[in-house]
Nucleic acid binder design. Structure first.
Ligand SMILES: [Mn+2]
Ligand SMILES: [Mn+2]
Ligand SMILES: [Mn+2]
Ligand SMILES: [Mn+2]
Lengths: 218, 218
DNA sequence: ATATATTTTTAGATTAGTCTAAAAATATTT
DNA sequence: AAATATTTTTAGACTAATCTAAAAATATAT
């Protein structure tokens, strides 16, 4: 039996460790989970005992195969619920994260398989993140971050890194969403801002935006 | 802030006390929630402190207006999710209860309002129980229990009391569901069993069945 | 290589929810 | 009205998850 809290820690370790590959620091986990390092140490010991993680004192923590399986399954549930909320319940992409954070912990294989089918087996969530299938396989997409795009080229927006409501609303207000086509007009070396052309407008976006928007060449 | 456990206790008190009207015993709650009386005493004190319940030592517990509001809202969520599972995700009526037991605790007004709309504002759940609207109003249905039906009369099945998988599967296997039309053929005084006629068959049902199936005269 | 700073772990408390066993109150019999 | 049985509450302990403050280990700077 795995608790909701354990699931959240495992998911955080997965994300912080670049999809469960790298070792993750105590402090990084504490930061991500809004707890204290001492709490993390305790939990990480427990995860290690339950064989979801490998942990050696002072050496950081990595997920085991079991841990990764748990993480991927929660991510699958999280993203499927996000699709459901946007596609069926009129949520906007900046409203779904918080609710999905809770829905992802509902335990029922039938529920999630049927939801998947009901949504017609989506492969990406509303933020452009891939949804692993039942076996845990991700569909990988070729994408680059706006900050590294070439001047003169045209791209399609395919994802966001930051999924905070602030950032997503900013994109909304500038008519940028998944699927939007943009052309890189100019990169300003002084502050790393970028001028981009949309269908009917040209805007300048800051470096923080440029680092959080993913593109695919068209 | 209200915890999941508090919500479950409030719901149990509501149901046991005939929709929040009557006072409920410690032991009854313990039985219903699969805990011990001592745990119930502790929780009931807490609910009382938080103004969800009125409690005097040794005198049982009743819900306050606030407590009733909480209960009705959880029941609303529980039943809407049950409808969703049956109507959209191919669950059968004997599979929904357990999952709904968890989904009912997800806290998001938008989620539940949009779900309600998505399901086209259903008024009954898959077991024939009424779904309160946003304001907490129930649509009351006239119904009697099979045990009290009159020989010779014809009725429509409109609900079940026991929602256990065993009972519901039994009904399935005898082709009885909500909406099924039945005629009372004979009541056996010896064991209180009842012979009923369905569309294409006649069956005898035991007293336990007769006490758990609700009918409406047609 | 020593001193200083940072990170991580331990020790000891706290809160929510649970339990068992014993005590107290209430209800039922005789 | 006592005696007995039942119900309910208290007392004390346990687990999961958290915290603060102090100690220990590791990393960085001089
Ligand atoms: Mn979560
Ligand atoms: Mn997402
Ligand atoms: Mn519940
Ligand atoms: Mn129901």
């Amino acid at each position: 039996m795995i608790t909701l809290t354990e699931e959240n820690y495992i998911k955080a370790i997965y994300h912080l460790g670049n999809n469960g590959i790298n070792s993750v620091n105590t402090n990084a986990i504490a930061e991500a989970m809004n707890t204290k390092a001492s709490s993390v140490t305790d939990m990480v010991k427990k995860l290690s005992e339950k064989n979801y993680a490998d942990y050696k004192k002072y050496q950081g923590v990595t997920l085991t195969d079991d841990g990764r399986r748990v993480a991927v399954n929660i991510i699958r549930k999280h993203r499927l619920w996000e699709v459901f909320l946007v596609e069926k319940l009129n949520f906007s992409w900046d409203e779904v994260h918080e609710v999905a954070e809770h829905l992802e912990h509902i335990k029922s294989d039938k529920l999630i398989d049927e939801l998947d089918a009901f949504l017609e087996f989506p492969t990406y969530d509303p933020h452009g993140d891939p949804i692993p299938d039942k076996e845990g396989n991700f569909k990988h997409i070729e994408k680059i971050v706006l900050a590294k795009a070439e001047v003169g080229s045209t791209y399609k927006c395919v994802g966001v890194d930051d999924t905070s409501s602030h950032f997503l609303k900013y994109l909304d207000s500038n008519n940028i969403g998944l699927g939007t086509i943009i052309t890189i007009k100019h990169k300003e070396p002084f502050d790393n801002s970028i001028k981009i052309a949309l269908e009917n407008s040209e805007i300048v976006v800051s470096q923080s935006v440029a680092k959080n928007l993913y593109l695919k060449k068209v």
